[in-house]
Simulated scan of single mutants.
Amino acid sequence: MGTREINLLLSVAGDLPDRIRLIAPRSDLWFRCLDKSQMSGLVDSLGIPSAPLLPVSGNGAVKDAVESLGWPCVIKPVSEQTSICGEKALILRDPEGLQGFLNDASGSPEPLLVQKYFMGRRHNLYFLAEHGRIVDVEETRVDRTDRRNGTGLGVAGRRIQASPEWVSHLRKLVSSLDYHGMGCFQFLESEQTGEGCFLEVNARLGANYGHLQKSGADLLERWIEQASLNESRNEGRPETVRSLKYAWTYGELRSIERRWSDGSAGLGETAHDLWKMVESGLKADVHLDGSWRDPRPAWVLYRRYFASLLKRLYRKGRPVPKVSAHARPTQSALPR
Rank of each mutant, 00 (worst) to 15 (best):
G317H: 13
R19F: 13
S215C: 09
P17N: 04
E269C: 02
A203C: 09
K245L: 00
E139M: 11
Q192I: 15
R296I: 14
G14S: 13
L282I: 00
R254I: 07
S176A: 15
A89K: 14
G107Q: 03
R159G: 01
R312M: 06
R233Y: 11
R304S: 08
L288I: 03
R148A: 07
R296Y: 09
P319L: 05
T240A: 00
P25W: 01
P297Y: 04
G251D: 07
E239W: 08
R32S: 08
E5H: 07
E130V: 12
T151L: 04
G281R: 11
A156R: 13
S37W: 11
A271F: 13
R315A: 03
S37L: 08
G107S: 03
L42T: 08
A271T: 10
G60H: 01
S50P: 12
L46M: 05
K276C: 13
F118D: 08
R242W: 05
R204G: 06
F306G: 05
K322Q: 15
E195Y: 06
F127L: 05
V155F: 04
I48S: 01
I48L: 01
F198T: 04
V56P: 01
D104S: 09
L309R: 14
S40I: 02
T140M: 10
V201N: 07
S190F: 06
Y302E: 01
D44K: 08
G86N: 00
L54W: 00
L282C: 14
G194P: 04
G266S: 02
S255G: 03
S261M: 01
I6E: 02
A325W: 12
G70N: 04
H287R: 10
S291K: 09
K36N: 03
V12M: 04
S108D: 13
R315V: 01
F31E: 09
S68F: 02
S68H: 10
K214R: 15
G152D: 04
S190N: 07
L125D: 02
L69S: 06
G132I: 00
L253C: 05
I91K: 15
R144L: 11
E110G: 02
E110D: 10
H287Q: 12
G41F: 01
E67L: 11
E200Q: 11
H180D: 15
A105G: 02
P295A: 04
W299H: 15
M1Q: 11
R158Q: 12
P17Y: 03
L102P: 07
A227S: 12
V300H: 09
L205Q: 13
E5Y: 10
E80I: 00
K63T: 00
S11A: 14
L288G: 02
G206R: 07
P111Y: 11
L10V: 06
L113Q: 02
R32N: 13
G107M: 05
I23Q: 07
P319W: 03
L112I: 03
V286D: 15
N230W: 15
G157A: 05
E200N: 08
A61K: 15
L212W: 04
E221H: 14
